[in-house]
Write a protein that binds this DNA or RNA. Structure first.
Lengths: 198, 198
DNA sequence: TGTACATCAGTGAACGCGCGTTCACTGATGTAC
DNA sequence: TGTACATCAGTGAACGCGCGTTCACTGATGTAC
C-alpha cells in the first residue's frame, strides 16, 4: 500500500502543508490526513506538534552555505561575473523555496527560537551565505580579479539581499511576479555590482 | 481613566501584541486585556478578528514609498552618494519595523491575501520602493550623475534588498545582531554600489 | 425644574467548535521450545 | 509442527482546553416637554 515509512510521510505531509495552506492551518488533523495515517500516529514519532515542525525545518529546508563554500575553493575557472551570476541565480532559487516557511516563524516566536537554536548548533543561519560570499570575494581579491579597496562584505550583502528580496517583493505587485526572468535578473545584478553605476 | 478612545487602544494593543508575542498568540483575550476592555468590545468596532488585523496592517505600518518619491523630485541638493546613503539608512529602519509583522502573514495565507488586496488598492506594496528608487536613479542619470549605461533597476534591487535582508539575516547569528552599525552599513552599500568592485 | 424615554459605549457570562493530545486497544509479525 | 507469549506499528474514540464570537444586559449621557 505505502512505499514510504510512516515517519517520512508525516514529515513530507507537514512540509507540504506548511507551504500550501500555511503554518497556522497545518493542524494535526490535516497532517495526518495528508500522510494517510491517524493523528495518534504522529505522536509515535514526535513528542508533540512543535517537535514535528522543528524536524521539518531542519530536515527539509535546503542549505545555501555549502554551495558558496565550494566556490571560494576553486576560483579562476570562470570569470568573476560568471561566478556572481551563477551565485545570484542559485541564491534566488534558494530564497524562493525557503522564504515562505522561514517567514511563517515570525508568527510563532517560540517555534522560531527553537529553529534558531537548531541552526546555531549546525553553524547555519541566514547570515552564513553572506559570510560565504564575502569569503569568495576576498579570495578573488587575492587573485587580483576584485579591486583591492573593494568592500567585499557590502558587496555580498547587496547581491544576496537583492536575491532574497525577490522572494517576497512581488507577491503584491499587480501581476504577482517579478518583472524580469531569473537569468536576466541575476546577470543584471552581477554586472551592476562589478561595474558600479557612477 | 482612559485618555484615548477605545478603538485606538484596541488597534494599538493588537499592533503591539503582534510584534511582541507574535500573530499566532495575539488572541482576542490578550488584545482585550492589553486594550483594557472586554473581548465583546472588540466586536463593537470590528466585524471579526481578521478585520482587526487588516486594520492594524493598513493603519499602523509605515510606508517607504513616499520618502523615495520626494527624493526623485529635487535631486542635486546633495551628492548621489549622500542621497543613497540616506536612502539606505531610512530603508533599513523601515524594514526593521515592518518586516516581522509582514513576515507573519506567511503563516496565515488568507490574511496575507486580504492585506495584499488592501495594499494594491492603495497602490502600495513591497515592490514600490524599488520602483521609486529606480525612478530616482534615472533622474540622476538624466542629470549626468549616474552612468548612462547603468542598470538602474538592478541597482535599486541591490540597495533595497541589502537593507531588507539586514532585518532578518542576523536573528540567528551568535550575537543576534548585525556586525556593523547602521550608518557604516548604509555608507558601505552606497559607496560599493556607486563604484563597483572590479 | 423634574420626569420619561432614547441612545450609546461597553460588559459578564455563556456558547460551540476545533485544536493538540492521550488512552486502551488491535492485529500482524517475530521468537521459544 | 503447533502453541504460547512478546513486540511493534498503528488506530478509534474520547478528553479538556482555549479560542472566536454572541447574547441579553447595564449604567451613563443626551433629549423632549
Amino acid at each position: 500500500m505505502h512505499q514510504k515509512p510512516a515517519r517520512v510521510r508525516i514529515v513530507d505531509a507537514a512540509h507540504e502543508l506548511m507551504l500550501s495552506i500555511g503554518l497556522a492551518r497545518a493542524t494535526t488533523k490535516e497532517i495526518a490526513k495528508a500522510a494517510d495515517c491517524s493523528e495518534a500516529a504522529l505522536y509515535k514519532y514526535f513528542a508533540n506538534k512543535e517537535e514535528l515542525f522543528v524536524t521539518v525545518l531542519s530536515e527539509r529546508l535546503p542549505k545555501l552555505g555549502p554551495l558558496l563554500s565550494e566556490l571560494s575553493k576553486e576560483p579562476g575557472a570562470k570569470s568573476v561575473e560568471e561566478n556572481l551570476t551563477e551565485i545570484a541565480r542559485e541564491a534566488a532559487l534558494f530564497y524562493e523555496q525557503t522564504f515562505p516557511m522561514a517567514a511563517s516563524l515570525y508568527a510563532e516566536p517560540q517555534l522560531k527560537r527553537r529553529h534558531e537554536e537548531a541552526l546555531r548548533e549546525m553553524g547555519a543561519g541566514p547570515h552564513r551565505p553572506i559570510q560565504g560570499l564575502d569569503a569568495y570575494l576576498r579570495s578573488e581579491q587575492d587573485a587580483g580579479r576584485v579591486r583591492r579597496d573593494a568592500d567585499t562584505y557590502a558587496a555580498a550583502s547587496l547581491l544576496l539581499g537583492a536575491c532574497a528580496q525577490r522572494a517576497f517583493a512581488y507577491d503584491m505587485a499587480p501581476d504577482r511576479k517579478p518583472p524580469q526572468p531569473l537569468d536576466e535578473f541575476a546577470a543584471g545584478l552581477a554586472h551592476t555590482l562589478l561595474t558600479g553605476i557612477a
